[in-house]
Write a protein that binds this DNA or RNA. Sequence first.
DNA 1: CTGAAAGCGCTTACAG
DNA 2: CTGAAAGCGCTTACAG
Lengths: 358, 358
Amino acid sequence: MADRTGHRIVPETTRRTDRFPGTRYGNRPTMKDVAARAGVGLKTVSRVVNGEPGVTPETERRVQEAIEALGFRRNDSARVLRKGRTASIGLVLEDLADPFYGPLSRAVEEVARAHGALLINGSSAEDADREQELVLALCARRVDGLVVIPAGDDHRYLEPEIKAGVATVFVDRPAGHIDADVVVSDNFGGARDGVRHLIAHGHRRIGFIGDMPRIHTAAERLRGYRTAMEDAGIPVADAWMSLGVTDPERVRRAAREMLSGPEPVTAIFTGNNRVTVTVIRVLAEHARPVALVGFDDIELADLLQPGVTVVAQDAAALGRTAAERLFRQLDGTLIAPERIELPTRLITRGSGELPPAD
Amino acid sequence: MADRTGHRIVPETTRRTDRFPGTRYGNRPTMKDVAARAGVGLKTVSRVVNGEPGVTPETERRVQEAIEALGFRRNDSARVLRKGRTASIGLVLEDLADPFYGPLSRAVEEVARAHGALLINGSSAEDADREQELVLALCARRVDGLVVIPAGDDHRYLEPEIKAGVATVFVDRPAGHIDADVVVSDNFGGARDGVRHLIAHGHRRIGFIGDMPRIHTAAERLRGYRTAMEDAGIPVADAWMSLGVTDPERVRRAAREMLSGPEPVTAIFTGNNRVTVTVIRVLAEHARPVALVGFDDIELADLLQPGVTVVAQDAAALGRTAAERLFRQLDGTLIAPERIELPTRLITRGSGELPPAD
DNA sequence: CTGAAAGCGCTTACAG
DNA sequence: CTGAAAGCGCTTACAG
């Protein structure tokens, strides 16, 4: 796959041979080395490095000189061991490559940065075991806190960690079987409003295609769909609902089934961004126009013909809110876990306003 | 912004009050505590925790019991200090929220995971100072290696770190003023082919809108454009080229200018995904049809009218290749820095095949 | 203003 | 099979 070019050669010795002379961090100088070279005590070096007062300008100069000559950079891992806080937090999400999680992750990072902390990212790939493995690895590294988008539905394994002081906030989906902070979108209300919108435009046979029902957001959005239908007095046929993995094959089949038969649906509500994208493709090939409202906004949705009406959630706000909450836990400001729900927004662009093609 | 609901109350003491009794990691038990409780030596606990041989089943049982009773989890920060490798790598990119970097980041994460390492992510926000700050913070944490998408153009500040043993690979753009591994797409060739494609469809007045010229990829793509034009014997008017920040305002203005006047361009080549998206919007409002080829693929490009022809690069392959290279550095397998170039792919979907509207 | 000693929680090297 | 001692690179608490 790789097309290699430009093999510039450098002297081997500058490159790898002297790289790990001992077994330790290369051959990095330590404060001890700096102290020896500057002819001062260890603590004096520590003072200079940390900008603590009580060092003569002359002494400081000598130390600085030694630092530069040796290329010393403080080992924060050692510092952290002694201080008890690692100034890092962990973020476990489903898939960093999903356009929904990018902005969320970036928002968490910004808050962490404002608090002087680094962000360790991990993808669970929607696998509960992998989530747990990642979370516990982060705890072993003694991250100060954890922002988790749960893949699993039982988080009791985190109880000892939380009790031991690991700040924890769940985002996008609630934690299972433990009492913890959680920040979610109004999945139920958003879906209900989206379906109501379709009903208001004259639809009665409305399909729902969503993610696996064990995923909380999927279940909530389905509940929103059912509630909207029920409120309108429309009985829902089983054939109108399809939940399962979001891979294009499955979704495509589900959409086609709803759209065929003697009484096809005239509108579809899609349960998340990936489902929406696939259904748009199916509808593009479909003979009659079919109305569509999707959960999650997607890029270029306004440029399609028709534009795609969506129920948008604010991924960045989810991340920001969760991270801020995390650092408030670390401040010791918070008392009891809370559930914070962020509103969604219906954005009409055309596809949701199509009348039934009956 | 937050709509707060469900204030479940839990007893304060289980929550925060006993959270940091000392100053240290909560009140986590250590191996010493486990040893005391099990009535064995510290080293025996270490053996059990690490699955080393030479422990009686009975002793092991006692230790395991103590571990569970105490809720012990090994402090990997301490372990790492002693071992000299942190089993973590850093990834510095421009913006985690950009859809181009999500898949790249995920690919790096997967490779890291396969090597038992965690991934620390940081966004430079296209700011050279912030890039350096992040990179050096990661070095201070003693990450084993660094994957960097450069924002700045001078990386001599990394020289001492590399010499000290920090494995380093640059991706997407080359490093400045230092000799290091770099993995890039064929930006020049891809752009040249894209522009040739437009020329082959009869265009002569072709515009180029790209990112700031100081960004290597932008410069390379511009070079590709110029080469294609020159090869075809088409003199390029200054008014046809616009480089600058990719914010929609600037791009919109640039596109409109090229499209107005007595001799407007009949085709536009866009220098990256964000520029493409804005230009698509401009063209949608434009009277005459204008051909378009964009660098970077974008989601739903195939569903627009017309579909958007693009020069696609493989973000995941960039990340994967760079990370694999990084771990080969850490293995000690590699000798000299290399430049690896990944091919791009022209995907025709309609917009690039429109004839000139003359 | 300066520094020696002890300790953070582990692993390494060695001795019984 | 088991464990006491030393050490990783820092900071803390204390003494001069």
